[in-house]
Structures are given as structure tokens and as C-alpha cells.
Design a protein around this nucleic acid. Structure first.
Length: 417
RNA sequence: GUGGGUGUAGCCAAACGGUUAAGGCGCUGGAUUGUGGUUCCAGUAUUCGUGGGUUCGAUUCCCAUCACUCACCCCA
């Protein structure tokens, strides 16, 4: 208990945090180019926000939320996703009044009480983008494209992009009726999960992984066939934008997403090498959500990217992020007096911007040299009593083994060069 | 929530129902007293996730429990 973190959580140790920094850095840089502004919302919200925002019948809400009552008797939930909070903040701060189109991104931990598995954790990290205020398909395209640009820069070129349209609520109603009619007499052939889905969310039967269900569903009416004119042209426009930018994608008419708020466009970026959790990035349009949360009708699109999954994909593809390593300087000292001097020197070097380290345990010179080597020090300053008495120090260039004696007063100058 | 697999040192990893639990990596120290990366030597688990049971005897067999892991479900 004491020596184990809670199930489904991970410590990111100093030796592995470097790749997170790089990943986050690249994400931020791309968001700046695309002019998405970062929004940082609280990690917990009123439970109601997610009930409304994510949807009461979703698995997330029904069985995956970390919900508790705080000391003021409020029901609080650790955020399971980022869109609801972003929309809440958008309304709370009346951002629409500042500019009719808002482009925002968030990055941080999310919480879902799932059974942990490859690429799935109880605390995990998402980066997500939201564009509020445009109903145009070009906005859908923009979100897909920024995701791809980021993944591409990381070296992930060949991920699959799946897109679909699940229509507006009207198209969906038409489709739902047709679908239920189609599946009605085949209920007995479906898997138990699908039978229960039939009542709650028949659309989800379309992406059941059960082979038998897939066979049945392959002849089922696709949402695509029920789209109204507006939804149809929206989807066509999206595709023409993607084609214009040479984005390779597949229309996957069985692609359905599990959150209630999606309308029209849905998409996923996947890497099959990840196992069961192959979706690296998923999103879509959610034109009804802002209104659902009590705001004015506002069209919006967005996606969320699972950072652990991105990192996992990089690992599977054997791609290393270039984490800088090595230090500029190691100061080795011998004797109490020299160590005091070394400490002061170290301090000065750091003030001059050098990445510098010393030994804190009075170890032998040999041990200190070994440590310097292990740390990848470019230079080592050697400071013993002899040098101290002469007012000098030795600078050793580790690569060549070349050494020179330098006056202490000139040391930091020499080291910078 | 359901099902499968695994559980030996910081990491990887053997062995075996029975005296002192291989090896490798890593780490630490040393190879004449103040110098790294190679090499060599030495040290590094009174203990085999935890708790029961079977047995003359269990790390090895059984049960439970916990943890990890994979799959279903769902999703990032």
C-alpha cells in the first residue's frame, strides 16, 4: 500500500521525463503556429458538468468517474476529459464576447476508473484542441490537420486517419429508426453486449468488435445514407479540404464515438500496433454541447490526443525523441578547503548559465572522474590543495584528455569559452 | 464489472520438494598512495509478492489475497 501508487497511475521519473518535455514542447509550438491559446482549467469540476457535458448514458459517466463529496457537501468529479471544462470556461468568462471564434487547447491529466491495460490508465494525459464558433467544415479540417502535423513532427507519418459523419440529431433519428428496424429481427444473433446496446445506443452496435456482429452489421444501413443535405455537403467539404492538403484518410462508415455530444464529423487517428487501445487521437464536431451546458447555440469541433498512447506508439515504432543529455562541467575537488572553493565556483558557473555538477560525498578523485564521465561532462575542473595554494585549478577536456592550468580568477571566463 | 497470464535482488533472469538461492546488467570499492571511458578483482537477496494449507521438509504443490499484465467492455 504505502510503497505502491494507486492502481492505474504512473510515476514519471526524472530519467523518462525528458521525452514528455519534448512532446509537450512540440505540441505547444504547433499550437502557437496555429494560434490555439492554452487554457488551464481545474482538475476537478462540479459533477453535474460532466453529467450534462459528457452524457448521462455514457460509460464514462455511468461507471468511470472519480466522484466524491467535498467538505462543503458538493459533489465533485475529477475531470474525465477536457471538453466539458473548456466549454464551461468559455461560457463562464463569456469568451464569445471577446471574439466570436475561439481556438483553445489544453494539456494535462484526466481521470477514469477503468480497468488498466496497455495504453489505458486511471490517470492519463490528454492534449486536446477546441474550436468554438464556426460551423464550417474548414474548422473540422483545421483540427484534424494540426493533430497530424504534430504527430508527423514526432516521426509518426503513417498513422491511419478515419473519418465519418454521424449527422445532426435529425439525421440520426432517421437512421436510428432504420437501424433498429434492420436489427430488430436479428437481435438473437447479436452478442449480449449488442443486445443491451440495442436499447441504449444502437449506433454503437456498428463498431462492435465481435465478428458475428460485424458480419450482420456489414449490411446494416449506414448513417451516411440518412444524412440530410446540410450534413452531406458538410462532410463532402471536409473531404475536399483534406484532399487539398494531401491528407490521406479513410471514410469509415462504422466509426462511432462513445461520447454523446458528437454531431456530424467524427474522426480517429489510430495505430494498429498499440493493441486494443489503437486510438491515439479521437474527436469530432459537437454543435449541441454549448447549448446543452446552458449557453447560446454555438457550433464547435475538437479532439483529444492520448499522450501515453503517443509515447507508446513512438516506442513501438522505435522512434527516440532527442532528449538532450550531458552537462557542461563537473567540478572535482579534494580536501575540505578545496570542496568549499569548488562549491562556490560551481555556484558562479551556474550563474553564468553552465549546466554544472559536483560530488557531495567527499569521494575519491577517481570516483569523481567516473561520475563526471557518466554524466557526460564536457569539462572537469580539478581542484586540490596543490592547485588551491597556487591559486589555480586544472581544466580537463574529457574528450581529448587535454589539461591546462588556469588562474582561479579567470576560471569562469575560460569555462564559458 | 468479466476472463486469461505472471509475481525470485534496482533491472533482466535461471534453478530446484531437501545442506550455503546461478548468471548478466547496474551500482559501490579496489588494481601502490590526486584523474574517467577498456580490462581485471571484490562487494551487493538470512531470502524467493503476502497470508494460510499439504508435507518429515516448500521459493518450488494447493488455496486465498494483493500487485502487475493482456483481452472483453469502453475510450485517449
Amino acid at each position: 500500500m504505502l510503497t505502491n501508487g494507486p492502481r492505474g497511475t504512473n510515476d514519471i521519473l526524472p530519467q523518462e521525463v525528458g521525452k514528455w518535455h519534448i512532446l509537450e514542447g512540440k505540441i505547444r509550438a504547433w499550437c502557437e503556429r496555429y494560434r490555439f491559446g492554452e487554457i488551464r482549467t481545474p482538475i476537478f469540476e462540479h459533477t453535474e458538468l460532466f453529467l450534462r457535458g459528457v452524457g448521462e448514458t455514457t460509460d464514462i459517466v455511468e461507471k468511470e468517474m472519480y466522484t466524491f463529496t467535498d467538505r462543503g457537501d458538493r459533489s465533485i468529479t475529477l475531470r474525465p476529459e477536457g471538453t466539458a471544462s473548456t466549454v464551461r470556461a468559455f461560457l463562464q468568462h463569456k469568451l464569445a464576447g471577446q471574439a466570436p471564434l475561439q481556438k483553445m487547447y489544453y494539456m494535462g491529466p484526466m481521470f477514469r476508473y477503468d480497468r488498466p491495460q496497455a495504453g489505458r490508465y486511471r490517470q492519463f494525459h490528454q492534449f486536446g484542441v477546441e474550436m468554438l464558433g464556426s460551423s464550417e467544415a474548414i474548422a473540422d479540417a483545421e483540427t484534424i490537420v494540426i493533430a497530424l502535423d504534430i504527430l508527423k513532427e514526432l516521426g509518426l507519418n503513417d498513422l491511419e486517419v478515419h473519418i465519418n459523419s454521424i449527422g445532426c440529431p435529425q439525421c440520426r433519428q432517421v437512421h436510428k429508426e432504420k437501424l433498429m428496424e434492420f436489427l430488430g429481427d436479428r437481435l438473437s444473433e447479436l452478442c449480449p453486449d449488442c443486445v443491451s446496446r440495442f436499447e441504449r445506443n444502437p449506433l454503437r452496435i456498428l463498431d462492435c468488435k465481435n465478428k458475428k456482429c460485424q458480419a450482420i452489421v456489414s449490411d446494416a444501413p449506414a448513417v451516411m445514407t440518412c444524412l440530410c443535405d446540410e450534413c452531406r455537403t458538410h462532410f463532402e467539404k471536409l473531404q475536399s479540404y483534406l484532399q487539398k492538403l494531401n491528407v490521406k484518410y479513410e471514410v469509415d462508415t462504422n466509426l462511432v464515438r462513445g461520447l454523446d455530444y458528437y454531431t456530424k464529423t467524427v474522426f480517429e487517428i489510430m495505430y494498429s500496433g498499440l493493441g486494443a487501445q489503437s486510438t491515439v487521437c479521437g474527436g469530432g464536431r459537437y454543435d449541441g454541447l454549448v447549448e446543452e451546458c446552458g449557453g447560446p447555440s454555438t457550433p464547435a469541433v475538437g479532439f483529444a490526443m492520448g499522450l501515453e498512447r503517443v509515447l507508446l506508439t513512438l516506442e513501438k515504432m522505435d522512434i527516440q525523441l532527442a532528449v538532450p543529455q550531458g552537462i557542461d562541467l563537473f567540478i572535482a575537488s579534494m580536501g575540505e578547503e578545496a570542496q568549499v572553493e569548488a562549491f562556490s565556483l560551481l555556484h558562479q558557473c551556474r550563474a553564468h548559465g553552465l549546466k554544472a555538477e559536483m560530488d557531495y560525498r567527499k569521494r575519491s578523485l577517481k570516483a569523481q572522474m567516473k561520475q563526471a564521465n557518466k554524466l557526460g561532462a564536457e569539462k572537469v575542473v580539478i581542484l586540490g590543495e596543490e592547485e588551491l595554494n597556487k591559486g589555480q585549478a586544472i581544466i580537463r577536456l574529457m574528450e581529448t584528455g587535454e589539461q591546462l592550468e588556469v588562474e582561479l580568477s579567470q576560471l569562469t571566463e575560460k569555462l564559458k569559452g
